[in-house]
């Protein structure tokens, strides 16, 4: 189960500005889903190693050779707001 306070906390972590109606709905829906997935908490898993990835990929290295990269203008093309050749970001103050 998950309470509304936890929903608000998780929403803040996820940078989702949920309104009160969404918080209540999310609380009910997430609780339902968690109740279902809770089933795996009953399994005996102490000696089982976790699988993060099905391939055994080690670090992949390449030669450090400069190649062509995205043109500056193209990199900015899709930005909602730009200024002086950069992405425009609001201040971090409240």
């Amino acid at each position: 189960m998950i309470d509304e306070q936890t929903v608000r906390h998780v929403a803040r972590l996820a940078r989702l500005g949920l309104d009160e109606g969404e918080v209540a709905r999310m609380q009910a829906e997430l609780s339902g889903i968690l109740e279902h997935v809770e089933r795996i908490r009953a399994l005996e898993l102490d000696d089982v190693p976790p699988t993060t990835h099905v391939e055994s990929v080690a670090n992949v290295m390449r030669e450090d050779v400069p190649t062509e990269c995205l043109e500056h203008e193209l990199a900015l093309r899709e930005a909602p707001a730009t200024r002086e050749g950069g992405f425009l970001v609001r201040g971090i103050g409240a």
Binding site: R15, G17, R90, I92, G93, A94
Partner: peptide, 13 residues
């Protein structure tokens, strides 16, 4: 949005 945090939260909502 007034702040960066509000910008993120509203954009994603």
């Amino acid at each position: 949005a007034d702040s960066l945090l509000e910008h993120y939260e509203r954009t994603r909502d």
